[in-house]
Amino acid sequence: MTFTLTVSDEVRALAPGFTHVAIEAHGLVNGPSTDASSALLDDAVRRLTARLAGRAPHEDPHMAAWRAAYTAFGAKPSRTRNSAEALAKRALSGAGLPRINLLVDLYNAMSVAHLIPVGGEDLDRIQGGMRLVRATGEEDFVTVAGGAEAVEHPEPGEVVWRDDAGVTCRRWNWRQGPRTRLTERTVSAVFLLETLAPMPVPEAEAAATELAELLAKSSPGARLEVCAPVSSGAGA
Rank of each mutant, 00 (worst) to 15 (best):
A56D: 06
P57V: 01
P57Y: 04
H58S: 08
E59V: 03
D60F: 12
D60S: 09
D60R: 03
D60T: 08
P61W: 13
P61A: 09
M63H: 11
M63N: 12
M63D: 14
A64V: 07
A64E: 07
A65W: 12
A65P: 10
R67Q: 13
A68C: 03
A68E: 15
A68R: 14
A69F: 14
Y70T: 09
T71W: 03
T71S: 15
A72P: 12
A72R: 12
F73R: 13
F73D: 14
F73A: 12
G74I: 01
A75F: 00
A75G: 04
K76V: 13
K76G: 07
K76E: 15
K76W: 02
P77E: 02
S78G: 11
T80L: 14
T80Q: 11
R81H: 09
N82Q: 13
S83D: 02
A84M: 05
A84C: 06
A86G: 14
A86T: 06
L87Y: 11
L87W: 06
L87E: 00
A88H: 01
A88W: 05
K89Y: 08
R90A: 02
R90M: 09
A91Y: 00
L92S: 01
S93E: 06
S93G: 06
A95V: 08
A95H: 06
A95E: 14
G96L: 10
G96D: 04
L97K: 02
P98M: 08
R99D: 10
N101A: 09
N101Q: 08
L102N: 11
L102M: 14
L102P: 07
L102K: 14
L102T: 15
L103A: 04
L103G: 04
L103V: 08
D105M: 07
L106K: 04
L106D: 02
L106F: 03
A109H: 05
A109Y: 00
M110V: 15
M110F: 07
M110C: 14
S111W: 00
S111D: 09
S111Q: 06
S111F: 00
S111P: 07
V112N: 03
V112Q: 03
H114N: 12
H114F: 15
L115N: 00
I116H: 01
I116A: 05
P117D: 03
P117E: 01
P117A: 02
V118Q: 03
G119W: 00
G120F: 01
G120E: 01
E121K: 08
E121W: 13
D122A: 11
L123K: 10
D124L: 12
D124S: 14
D124H: 15
R125V: 15
R125T: 15
I126M: 10
I126Q: 06
G129I: 10
M130Q: 13
R131V: 06
R131D: 10
R131Y: 12
R131W: 05
L132D: 08
V133K: 08
A135R: 04
A135Q: 05
A135P: 07
T136L: 12
T136E: 13
T136R: 14
E138L: 12
E139Q: 07
E139F: 02
D140M: 03
F141P: 00
F141W: 10
